[in-house]
Design a protein around this nucleic acid. Structure first.
Lengths: 249, 249
DNA sequence: CGGTAATTTGAGCCATTTCAAACTGTGTGG
DNA sequence: CCACACAGTTTGAAATGGCTCAAATTACCG
């Protein structure tokens, strides 16, 4: 998932731009961590850095899947649409995340930049060649896919069975955990995505997300600091909500 | 996803039991399809066939992930629970499916046999050794994971944004497609799982699933043939519901 | 400091849930 | 082979959480 605020955004943008992969600031997080210097060199030859402005589409559901990406900086949302416009956000990607693991012939979802975003782009053909020679890389990719699968199942539980309050609490804690894991501040947590994005991720409406924020605020469980930043005040209450035992706050 | 009825159940149970992997009836579907005869021999040495009776637990969420499985016959449901008993079924597995791709230290969900079920069991350690030597296998596994990821995203869209009628229609068509793909009858489609399982998979209650079946039946879109078998009558109407454009039926 | 989009708040409504009761199919024992 | 019994399913009626539509605020940006 992605994050943002003045400070964090600056940090993200400071990361490798135009440098060879060996110096990539994201390397220790991304799949490239699996590679030796020589292999990195080879990877670097097939990589091309690309920028997307806030709101720009990276690729659309149904497009031929010609590229895979590594998020260098910024944030990305993955979106699925129904013909009548109903929208489901299936995930938020932060720096270090891999985009396009599903090596199918077409993309199963659209990807859009939430912030100004830099990506490493790999040609699909080239990656497949690389994977043949570098089993580490494939192994790492499989690990990545496995993690995404676990996250997807958690999300199914959330969408199928949790209340609005529980969904928002789960979301905020998840955001905070990820921020920490990636070295960003984890308590006032940044929310780079709009309320609509959050709603479409949690299977709710914007109005419900907003009302739920208000209720959590009134219960002193969280505090909003501006619109794109939340402070988690009562971790215990949040954890209770996430587990989903019984109500109280 | 799984299926059942007298005929189909018989077919499943007729498949390889105690035979070496080379003769495994499921091989062309499962991950083993990626292997050469010599490699299969090696696989066979680390495999152990296991049976689970209907309703039996194969493993539970949180258990150390010591085994991976291949479904030979029967059907399996994957379940996540909240402490207060709310339940989400995250998937149904049919013969040929792979169970436990997430190579994490503990299982992220429980697996339970819906029918009497036979599985190939692989030790985790052994599989990891095998993967080191057989890149094909890892590649195949990655492909499998990618497919599951796509299915998971579709399910998020369903859980987050579809109506009860659309959810049930999507489920039935998906079931039918899978049956066809696996060589089972795809029009009267078998439903080996209970209404409760369906409800917990679709994020609904049993009552709503039942009422929705009734509405689809009254609209002559489907016909129930016994409780564990549905005939899809109006494919067009089903497809419209799945796409989720606008209502009518 | 104003303009504009995003967010929040309000009021009424509706799809789905909940709680409760009737039904039905399936498998069993007589 | 049939009647019975029970679990699973269906139906009914009332309650409700989240949605819809609409308006008021607020935050952000130039």
């Amino acid at each position: 998932m992605g994050y943002s605020n003045a400070l964090q955004t600056r940090a993200w943008h400071a990361q490798a731009f135009g440098k060879p992969c060996a110096n990539c600031g994201i390397r220790s997080i991304g799949i490239c961590a699996a590679l030796e210097p020589g292999e990195l060199e080879r990877l670097h030859r097939i990589v091309k850095e690309t920028r997307f402005a806030e709101g720009q589409s990276i690729f659309s559901e149904g497009d031929p899947a010609e590229s895979l990406f590594n998020v260098l900086s910024g944030a990305v949302r993955l979106v699925k649409l129904l013909p009548d416009g109903r929208r489901q956000v299936t995930g938020f990607l932060m720096p270090g995340a891999f985009l396009g693991i599903a090596l199918n012939s077409t993309y199963a979802y659209s990807a859009e930049a939430i912030l100004d975003t830099k990506l490493c782009r790999f040609g699909r053909r080239e990656i497949e060649g690389l994977l043949k020679d570098l089993p580490h890389l494939e192994h790492r990719l499989l690990g990545e896919a496995a993690n995404e699968l676990v996250a997807a199942q958690d999300q199914m539980l959330l969408l199928g069975r949790k209340t609005a309050k529980e969904r928002l609490a789960s979301f905020l804690v998840c955001l905070s955990r990820n921020a920490k894991r990636h070295g960003f501040p984890d308590n006032p947590v940044a929310l780079p995505m709009s309320r609509t994005d959050i709603a479409d991720f949690l299977g709710l409406t914007t109005e419900t997300v907003s009302r739920t924020f208000t209720r959590l605020r009134q219960a002193k469980v969280v505090a909003l600091e501006g619109n794109a930043m939340v402070r988690l005040l009562d971790r215990r209450a949040l954890d209770d909500l996430i587990a989903g035992g019984d109500e109280e706050a």
